[in-house]
Amino acid sequence: MKRRNIVGALAAVAMMAASHAAAAADKIAVITPYLAQPGTQFYVEAFQAKAKDFGWEVNVVDTKGDVAAAIARIEDAANQKVSAIVINVDPSQVAAGLEAAKAAGVPVFGMDAGATPLLVTNVTSNGYSMAADTAAYVTNRIGGKGNVVMFVFDAFPPVQQRGVIADTIFKNNPGIKVLDRVTPDVQDGGIADSRAKMEAILSANPEKGAISAVWAAWDQPALGALQAIEAAGRTGEGIVITGIDANPQAREAIGKGGNFEASMAQDFKGIGATVADAVKRHLSGEKIKQGVIYVPTKLITSANVNE
């Protein structure tokens, strides 16, 4: 009886040892509760592709929405003294894990995670430049004059910074008047309330050409505004709509060549690859100065929406 157990134990240990044999390479743990989300998958795949070139051993840990489990896995990886940890989760929620990593001397990198001194750096898209691109697109399309409706959300910092940039660009064009700066109710996702708000604005400005453009800080209000314009039968007035994020629904609308003309696509793969580069730089002894590394984004119009 006892002998059986010992043999079983040895077999189990041998099997685990075999799977553990190749241990010389740098070990990188990628930890996220959000692997099921499409954006995260793109980051991680691009990161893994680069990691393969660098000869790293990457362990991707998906805690399936469980943030406390993400902390636990960060602590485990820190304990194990991996070469680096990459996270895709709000750092303020996993501060306990980040402090464990700091105590163990293991560097942590953010993959579109949010900025904090506990990270070596965070790689993300530049909200300022995304807003600048779409606001400049609007200005250009309406020839620098006309009434513009803005959809903003100042309570959420990443979206607030987009609004500030658009304000500046519109202010810099004397011919442009911001007719309304709307904060939609986002409880339902933002489309329905934005539509209702836009319908009210259309009713208040009934004459043709009274509204030249709608600039939205993200796609949902842009889609809501589009629905309102369609429902009011005013698609023929040439009102230009722009959003940010280029989600599938927005891409579809842009592809139809209607009022919704432009949005911004984040380069998820570029973010994943840039994180790998940052880890590589850090491991080879370089001190990374920027707390945030920005990856360029791309203006999406009907010309390139199907690429």
Partner: peptide, 13 residues
């Protein structure tokens, strides 16, 4: 099990 397998870099699934 969770702790050990993470340390051994075994896939989380």
């Amino acid at each position: 099990l969770s702790n050990g397998l993470t340390q051994l870099s075994v896939d989380s699934y």
